[in-house]
Design a protein around this nucleic acid. Sequence first.
DNA 1: CATCTAATCAACCGAACGGTTGACAAGCCC
DNA 2: GGGCTTGTCAACCGTTCGGTTGATTAGATG
Lengths: 119, 119
Amino acid sequence: MADHLTLVFGALADPTRRDIVARLAVGDATVGELAAPYDISVQAISKHLKVLEGAGLVTKTAAAQRRTVHLEAEVFDLMTKWIEKYQQQAEERYQRLDALLEQLDQDGNVIPQPQEKSS
Amino acid sequence: MADHLTLVFGALADPTRRDIVARLAVGDATVGELAAPYDISVQAISKHLKVLEGAGLVTKTAAAQRRTVHLEAEVFDLMTKWIEKYQQQAEERYQRLDALLEQLDQDGNVIPQPQEKSS
DNA sequence: CATCTAATCAACCGAACGGTTGACAAGCCC
DNA sequence: GGGCTTGTCAACCGTTCGGTTGATTAGATG
């Protein structure tokens, strides 16, 4: 099976599923309630929910024949952490580049590629 | 064509592409440099880069026959905003639920479903 | 000019995806 | 119990996806 981040990003790479997440952020809902706004079959929604469930974004609890779907917001932290990591790295890199360019400005020397080669 | 968020999430729903993003956060690289660590073909990496490019996560600049690939960190903001929106909504919902439960505790009345129906 | 290198384009392949329809399971309600 | 409601399971279908191989373009270099 794929790793968690792949499942989470994959789950949110679909507009319908993002829509469902948006709906669930307001409050829990049954499968039927979630399916109502769309003109695709209930089975298709059920599949979407299984993808969201597989990514840990959603949990289902069976009460009578109704399944209540609940959003698990904590999983978002996983994504946010991943994103912030590279956002931060990229920013640091820019700052290093800026510092370097500033330094170059002082002695007037021009180097086209500031980063070093690996290999 | 799909909307931007779909493209971004879709692009990051693949471990190899997330890996490439991680590599690019450290600094720009050529297609060949990006392909080196993997035992899949350069063509496959080229395809991955096209997906990342289509999502606006990456830009390519052609210098000689080498294409330098550059990470565009700003696109992450789009995702972060989307995520934070529902993270925040879900949290607010919990707080409302907590407040409600606390209130219920006081007069001892029990209501099973705190959110209202929309139909 | 000939050739080597770097990267893309194009066609193809199997697997996964998003959707459908049909059958079925599990509860409520008359 | 019989039937309605709610939801899932299973099989199928066309499209997309991640990968391959082969050919081709574009620039550096002998």
